[in-house]
Design a protein around this nucleic acid. Structure first.
Length: 325
DNA sequence: GCCACCGGTGGC
DNA sequence: GCCACCGGTGGC
């Protein structure tokens, strides 16, 4: 069955040590500093895994592992984040990687009024059309999630960060904003307070309405633990909880050797190395009202880097199985 | 001591 | 049941 998804967006996990090079993370309660440099973000794709907080363990990776290991300190700083972005064409329903987070936010903001179509990807992927194969494939190392449309574009010099929680947590993700002064804000109230304390932001036209703390929703329905569930009832990987069983997965296909998204496929010559090998693939099914759930984000799970060159093109994959009722 | 991450809870 | 908000705390 074909998904009726029109104009969706996805992105896989990024692993950034921290937002725009803020050396130390601060909350609103902390004092501001003036620093606002603009270091790069690092993008790493992870396999899905339950290693967080030793809550669960899962061996049996089917994906190759990059030997480079972060230090313990880095490891802690590394979170599950978005690594790349894609949108689903409203016409052909194929997925197109989006060149930058900024572009993704622009598309997402306009998703309802101006649905994404392949032609828009010509901006960074010349001559792409609906006849070209999809840019992305499904991968058991990736965790997919639905992003909300019409989230306002992040104001200039601010950074919107979505951090994915571990599987079995009570929430899927946390959304943070980082101010130009390096202050971490985690709610509208904190933003409101910050804007009051920083009239220069208002002078630049930054408003509370430019912020949204809506987080994406996992496609894997049982990724988040219900409130009534105890910590002992953490999900274990089953067919219903996995995006695809390993034997149906083509390892490392998606987002292998991703560049930081800021520098992602800015030029055709980079496309060949940075873009995933296109395959034919049906978009994942999304329950409910796609008109309000058109954007997807693709995440991955653990702290093991995945990097592999492409292999033989796979057969088209079935969408992930629907979660058990 | 700091902070990334998670859980609890009140409001809807 | 969901979500916004924020406090607690384990790991560093």
């Amino acid at each position: 069955m074909e998904s009726k998804a029109e104009n969706s967006m996805i992105s896989p996990i990024e692993n950034s040590v921290s937002p725009p090079s803020v050396k130390r993370q601060k909350t609103l309660s902390d004092k501001d500093s003036d620093q606002c440099d603009d270091a790069s973000q690092q993008v790493v794709i992870y396999k899905n895994d339950k290693s967080d907080r030793g809550r669960d363990e899962q061996s049996g990776s089917h994906l190759p592992i990059v030997p480079a290991k972060p230090s313990k300190k880095q490891k802690r700083a590394l979170g599950k984040q978005i690594g790349a972005f894609a949108a689903q064409c409203a016409k052909c329903q194929k997925w197109r990687l989006i060149s930058t987070k900024e572009k993704y936010e622009e598309i997402r903001e306009q998703a309802l009024e101006d649905p994404f179509v392949c032609e828009k990807a010509c901006e960074w992927k010349p001559d792409v059309t609906c006849d070209d194969p999809s840019d992305v494939s499904q991968d058991n190392g990736m965790l997919w999630a639905i992003d909300k449309p019409n989230i306002p574009r992040t104001p200039q010099e601010w950074e919107r960060l979505v951090k994915i929680r571990g599987e079995g947590s009570t929430k899927f993700a946390d959304v943070y904003y980082w101010s130009p002064t390096g202050t971490q804000l985690r709610s509208s109230k904190e933003v409101e307070k910050y804007l009051e304390e920083h009239p220069e932001c208002a002078a630049q036209g930054v408003k509370l309405s430019h912020f949204s703390f809506q987080s994406p929703a996992p496609l894997q329905k049982d990724y988040v633990r219900k409130r009534s569930q105890t910590s002992q009832s953490v999900v274990t990987p089953t067919r219903s909880t996995m995006l695809l069983p390993p034997e149906e997965v083509v390892p490392g296909r998606l987002m292998s050797s991703l560049q930081p998204y800021r520098h992602f496929c800015p030029h055709p010559k980079h496309m060949a190395s940075n873009m995933v090998q296109p395959i034919s693939w049906e978009p994942p099914p999304v329950d409910g009202n796609l008109e309000n759930n058109m954007l997807l984000v693709l995440y991955s799970g653990d702290r093991t880097q995945v990097a592999q060159s492409s292999s033989e093109p796979p057969e088209p994959k079935s969408p992930p199985p629907a979660p058990a009722a």
